[in-house]
Design a binder for these strands. Structure first.
Lengths: 115, 115
DNA sequence: CTCCGTTATGTTCATGCAAACATAACGGAG
DNA sequence: CTCCGTTATGTTTGCATGAACATAACGGAG
């Protein structure tokens, strides 16, 4: 499961967090939205809706798609997509490393994990 | 309105972002949950629910309350509350300053603001 | 031409969540 | 004892969200 304490980047009302980052990773690795969805236990429609949401946010799409048969159809993460992913990861790493003290201080105040 | 690009800290499913931070600020400034809610254009119930949610997250409450009349009743932000607020702000500042490059890079890729 | 895996889209249903409204308990001030 | 502003809680209703199901379009492989 996801770590107890994490960060989400927000573009207005639209969140970009661990879920969308992992989806982009899976699309890059699998070469299709449906395969990525399967690998993540997510319905194709759900995955596709998330992709559409992300693409709508940016001037150029983060994921490009192609219809068609087994060898032709598929999806690829664009350079813009890789860039967004890289900058998102950089921000998360920044917080995880240089913000470790603050994160630990907050964690120490948290109530014991509930069932 | 809130900035187009911001961060929320997540404790499991529970978010802690600009809204709750501002609510804590207002409670500290106004001395009561209801006054804080009024100042923020938020119903008392909404504000109280948020306070309850935050208090449940931590080992000791972030806000303590007292019932009663005009001079007696009210709410105060505890030391734990001030600490959480300070560490949250520190993380946000860290991202805003040292993550400025990544934030700018992402912003540059965003589609022009829609209506 | 058929088949298969993919993208693309729509519909329905359940669930969660927030807003609005309503009410009770409290306790000092006067 | 009454009043007032506060904390505290419950109920209802509308809206947004997600899950599940269904269907269409596409296009290369064979």
């Amino acid at each position: 499961m996801e770590p107890r304490l994490h960060l989400r980047l927000y573009f207005g009302e639209i969140p970009f967090g661990p879920g969308k980052a992992a989806l982009l990773d899976q699309i890059a690795a699998q070469g299709s939205i449906s395969a990525a969805g399967r690998a993540m236990g997510m319905s194709y429609k759900r995955a596709w809706d998330l992709v559409e949401e992300m693409n709508a946010l940016f001037a150029s799409p983060l994921v490009v798609t192609a219809r068609g048969g087994a060898a032709k159809g598929g999806a690829q993460v664009t350079e813009a997509g890789q860039a967004v992913l890289a900058h998102y990861r950089a921000l998360m790493d920044l917080v995880a490393e240089q913000g470790a003290g603050d994160l630990a201080a907050i964690s120490a105040l948290l109530a014991p994990a509930k069932g």
